[in-house]
Design a protein around this nucleic acid. Sequence first.
DNA 1: GTGAAAGCGCTAACAT
DNA 2: ATGTTAGCGCTTTCAC
Lengths: 327, 327
Amino acid sequence: MVTIHDVAKLAGVSVATVSRVVNENKRVAEKTRTRVEWAISELNYAPSVLGRNLRTSKSNLLLVLLPSISNPFYTEIINGIEDTAIARGYNILLCETDSNPKREAIYFNLLRNRLAEGIISMDPSVNKNKLLELAESYPVVQCSEYDTESPIPYVTIDNEQAAYDAVTHLIESGHRKIALINSDERFLYARQRQNGYEKAMQKHGLPIRDEWVYNAEHLRFGAGQKAIRTLLQLHDRPSAVFAVSDVYAIGALKEIHRLGKKVPEDIAIIGFDKITFSDMAFPTLSTIAQPMYEMGCISAEMIMDEISGVNVNSRVLEHKLIKRDST
Amino acid sequence: MVTIHDVAKLAGVSVATVSRVVNENKRVAEKTRTRVEWAISELNYAPSVLGRNLRTSKSNLLLVLLPSISNPFYTEIINGIEDTAIARGYNILLCETDSNPKREAIYFNLLRNRLAEGIISMDPSVNKNKLLELAESYPVVQCSEYDTESPIPYVTIDNEQAAYDAVTHLIESGHRKIALINSDERFLYARQRQNGYEKAMQKHGLPIRDEWVYNAEHLRFGAGQKAIRTLLQLHDRPSAVFAVSDVYAIGALKEIHRLGKKVPEDIAIIGFDKITFSDMAFPTLSTIAQPMYEMGCISAEMIMDEISGVNVNSRVLEHKLIKRDST
DNA sequence: GTGAAAGCGCTAACAT
DNA sequence: ATGTTAGCGCTTTCAC
């Protein structure tokens, strides 16, 4: 490995001068600078991030914590984070936790070791206490999922209102028996969307039956298929379904079709997120659009501001009802 | 930040002893070990990756280079890489290059700086020369895309044979006019699959018309939609299409449906990869299954073997024709 | 069994 | 304008 010493030797200067050139410090004579730059390219020298970090605690690296890379919802947020980070000279390190506390701990340590300068958490199953403890000493931002009672800044949408809008759309389309495919209630967004569902139903004097609320296990197409199978077997069958994720909704769409029924005639479906696939499904999926890309951009801005000592405020962004063929 | 010195002080020992305990070196008295361990947990100490790396060049970090996180094809490979790496104590750093040489350079430097110990490249647009140069000094493995003439070990499938199988399936279903939706011909897989397409056509004495070969721009659904629109406008229209990616095929499926035509009656479609969504599309997509997860596992094994000095050989894995409703 | 000290590559005072 | 040097947190000889 080529070190700063090799360059200094070849250029016939001290390591300090090389460091000055590399860091674009002004106080170097033009002639010296040229010679050093020549030596650098001659040796194909790249400064060690390790050595630099150790000295300056500056890695220009951001950690992004997410439960799984397989969900397209995160994919689009990440695009936003990346573009924004890159523009300000930061690079990101994607950390898939798989909801595994051990892996989470490894990534937290990366931050505590100053290998990264800040962390954006999108993991709903993150250990809230550990994250809070981390946030006391290091820059932390939460994206999408957050904690109502913690001081950690976040960017999100109004999940309750969004769910309310989705269900109201179904009601206004003439549905009275509306089911909910929810994910794990441990997650804040799941509870908030369930609240929105319930409020919309109550507002219109519609009954909520326990058996119409289905909690899916994993965030996969298969879970949506299983959910709709259960719902369709009910004695008192719902005529419409609100799924808290497009992934569930698309699985449901597929399964309904496989069973020879029609959407929205036999049963209407609305999803949540507006992932790219939602427009490729048959029929096209009505959904609640989250500004994923923007959420990514904003959380990246927030974390970089925090790092540079600027005060940041949480943000609640706008969602949008997208009416398509499934309702 | 808590350092090894803090722990040493609290435990009343030297930093060397703390280091021994942390690294599970045998030569520490039971009593001392207990006291040190107590101090560690008392202070919530986590060894600095930075300091350790600088000394040992051991980061237990793997770099994974990919063009875009949005393609589900990569997602499943990454799952395989992650599971395998984690099992052997490595963590991975996902690096999205967006086919941008500058970003590529940043990640290469991470390797040259020993911040990571090896790199798995899945980027078809990677700079072959730079990668080759890197491979002379550091562990490098290519996954899916590779270079026929370079000594860098790779894991892939037989793209030509797989494409041949896909097209043969269409021919055996009675099609004679078969179009190809390909991606950028700069990519090896694109050229190989085109070869397979041509060989299958020639083998059965079928004509290949230039206008039946469409090169899409970006790997997005929209590109598939655009491609099929062009193909359907041809005077001499193909009755079947082989798309080199499920993403193109699904876009095509959607567009055909939107135009009021039927698959496979009006036009048959076969894709490539077998991404999860291919089974959610309407109709379900026939495709060539790549063992993505396995490819990930094997490339991870390969890179870790390389790192530990074990000799590794390139691997060509089996593909499989999946007949579903679109053909 | 344990400690002292050198040194990994780098930056930033401080000196010249 | 440039060089000298301490020290970032850690591991690892080499003494004791």
